[in-house]
């Protein structure tokens, strides 16, 4: 084809035309995508709250994202990854009390009658006294307790390693289920924990704080200390322990927080 023929049918664009055209295309795309972004943001911001169930209080798409992100970060979990520990001298003398749900709302609680109830199945359950638990090998930990709010404190706890406890009471087969549920005796505070964190070597059922029996406000007589989770999962005054393959109910997950809340 001769170049002259081409010139007749299609004149090359002048610089001005080229500039105009490229401005038009790029700014058109810019505003179209920008509009799309604004629409997407509005959709997310106004997206309906998830159906209240095991989890609740979050926008449905954000809850899906939290659950997906959990799955991703679970890949990094290992029993060899330990929370940093400190010498006892570093532990706080005055240990922070952040919440008393399940404790101050239980006026009838009598520590003398307390026994840990472990649900074996629908009918059967194990009742274990604090003396029996104290007779098991003791594990101490001084670690940096981390609150979901952002504060942290080095604290000194002692008790029985949860995995030791499960083995001793031959609950290890039951603990193979995906989750453990813990509740206060009055059922006002409750948490769910996935198996990996339950069996983590630093997870303990604690009955001592700073070398003395745990005080009432810190969850006497027995509480959970689980350094691989935020404080919200460190349930005070354990009443009932259960196992399931589905997520057990969880107090803060019902209020918009991540169910996993792992560190």
């Amino acid at each position: 084809m001769k170049p002259t023929d081409q010139n007749k049918t299609k004149k090359p664009l002048t610089i001005e035309q080229k500039i105009k055209r490229r401005n038009f295309i790029s700014f058109g795309a810019f505003f179209a995508l920008g509009g799309g972004a604004v629409a997407g943001w509005k959709w997310l911001l106004n997206s309906p709250e998830e159906n209240a169930g095991i989890t609740g209080g979050a926008r449905a798409p954000l809850r899906r994202a939290l659950n997906k992100t959990e799955l991703f970060f679970r890949n990094f979990f290992s029993n060899n990854h330990l929370a940093k520990t400190y010498p006892k001298e570093r532990a706080a003398k005055i240990v922070r009390v952040n919440s008393l749900i399940g404790i101050k709302d239980d006026k009838d609680f009598d520590i003398k009658n307390w026994k840990l109830e472990v649900k074996i199945d629908r009918k059967e359950s194990l009742k274990i006294s604090i003396e029996e638990i104290k007779a098991l090998p003791k594990t101490e930990i001084v670690f940096d307790f981390k609150c979901v709010e952002g504060w942290d404190q080095i604290q000194h706890w002692a008790g029985v390693k949860l995995s030791d406890f499960l083995l001793h009471y031959k609950l290890d087969a039951l603990a193979e289920k995906n989750y453990m549920g813990l509740e206060t005796p009055n059922g006002k505070y409750y948490v769910g924990l996935e198996r990996d964190s339950v069996l983590h070597p630093q997870t303990i059922l604690a009955y001592e704080m700073n070398g003395k029996p745990i005080t009432n406000d810190h969850g006497a007589p027995l509480r959970l200390i689980i350094p691989v989770k935020y404080g919200i999962k460190n349930l005070k005054r354990i009443g009932v322990m259960s196992f399931s393959n589905q997520r057990p109910r969880d107090y803060w997950a019902e209020q918009g927080y991540d169910y996993y809340s792992g560190l």
Binding site: F76, S78, H81, G150, V228
Partner: peptide
């Protein structure tokens, strides 16, 4: 976010407080 699982990152950042 993951000071226990990614403890080495936390250490690299000078600890939990300094990282924050």
């Amino acid at each position: 976010y993951k000071p226990v699982q990614l403890y080495w990152l936390c250490w690299l950042c000078g600890g939990y407080h300094f990282a924050r």
